[in-house]
């Protein structure tokens, strides 16, 4: 399998800020890849490096096996859906979508049919004559998608494309993007700060922190087996057990992660903990516990947590396989 995008020791510095710091990364052909991280973690810069809007300070980027060091954006087989959509305000929807074909001087009739096809695909038949300013946020997003797909890129880059949409629309679009990617069979590279979005859509993802890849893997890897404290705390509400706590429980290690749903009430063999507070979540109850002066969150069945009261002593346990040893942050 060839790689769609490959980073070899890529760094990008802005003045003295290392936006991207020595990143090695391979994105496989045909996969739905997400770059996840807080703002300023370097994920968007990586996307802009692939598109060619930025050039790396050092290192080599290849797209479809070809080094792109000297290839400007307009000669890369890569297209982008921008965060603010970047629709051309002076052009109609159809003119926006067919822009790439017009630049390539494609025959007018072909241009028209392809534009129709793309607008059909994103379910915007009949909107061709409108101006972008007359569309809703969701519709603009579809136009941006159609415009980026018309030159049949091998790699589609999406920069926080769902950020501006409301919750319901966002969930709909997640489904749509995923099925679109399966139909087209091309590589999608998707930047987001929302871990839920990344998990529900991506085949694989890279978690970024301070210009570096903190962890690369499938959503399951990252959720259940975070490699370090940054990933564990950024991805969901995993408990991070410190070295002190581990040692006091007789376990060797730097730190470990433990998911709240893996903690059970075990009044016979459990470890003593104090219940600080509890909250009712419907089918489950969330317990805030203190062991050795460290806070842990546990998620237990409603029945298990029913009789517990604040300040009670509770005994808890977990399977040793649920505890994931972590390395220091990269």
């Amino acid at each position: 399998m060839t790689s769609a995008v490959q980073f070899e020791k890529v760094s990008k510095h802005f003045n003295n800020v290392r936006a991207v710091d020595d990143v090695d990364l391979t994105i496989n052909d045909g996969e739905f890849f997400a770059m996840l991280g807080p703002s300023g973690s370097g994920k968007t810069t990586c996307l802009r490096l692939i598109a060619g809007f930025e050039r790396p300070t050092s290192g080599e980027i290849s797209v479809l096996g070809e080094p792109v060091k000297n290839v400007p954006p307009y000669r890369r087989n890569v297209n982008t859906v921008f965060q603010d959509y970047a629709l051309f305000p002076h052009l109609s929807v159809a003119e926006n979508v067919s822009y790439a074909l017009k630049i390539k001087k494609i025959d007018k009739t072909i241009r028209r049919t392809e534009t129709e096809n793309l607008l059909d695909m994103v379910r915007l038949q009949g909107y061709g004559d409108r101006k972008p300013s007359e569309l809703s946020g969701g519709q603009r997003q579809r136009v941006a998608l159609a415009r980026a797909l018309i030159s049949k890129p091998k790699v589609l880059l999406l920069d926080e494309p769902l950020g501006a949409l409301d919750l319901k629309l966002r969930e709909e679009m997640q489904e749509e993007l995923k099925s679109l990617q399966r139909t087209l069979g091309i590589t999608f590279v998707f930047v987001t700060h929302d871990q839920g979005e990344a998990f529900s859509m991506a085949d694989r993802l890279a978690v970024f922190n301070e210009g570096r890849v903190a962890q690369l893997g499938t959503p399951e890897d990252i959720y259940y087996r975070p490699k370090n404290a940054f990933v564990a705390s950024f991805v969901g509400t995993s408990n991070v057990l410190s070295k002190n706590l581990l040692n006091s429980l007789g376990i060797e290690g730097f730190a470990a992660s433990l998911r709240p749903e893996d903690i059970n009430i075990d009044s016979e063999n459990g470890i003593a903990a104090r219940l600080i507070s509890k909250s009712f979540l419907g089918s489950a109850t969330r317990l805030s516990l203190e062991i050795n002066k460290e806070r842990l969150t546990a998620l237990v069945d409603y029945a298990q947590g029913q009789h517990l009261k604040e300040n009670d002593e509770v005994r808890v346990s977990w399977k040793s396989s649920a505890l994931h040893m972590m390395q220091p942050a990269p």
């Binding site: 809007f53 307009y74 297209n79 965060q83 415009r147 980026a148």
Partner: peptide, 12 residues
């Protein structure tokens, strides 16, 4: 981003 979008879509 309009300028970037245009370059992205193949315009020099």
């Amino acid at each position: 981003s309009l300028v970037e979008a245009s370059m992205d879509l193949g315009a020099n």
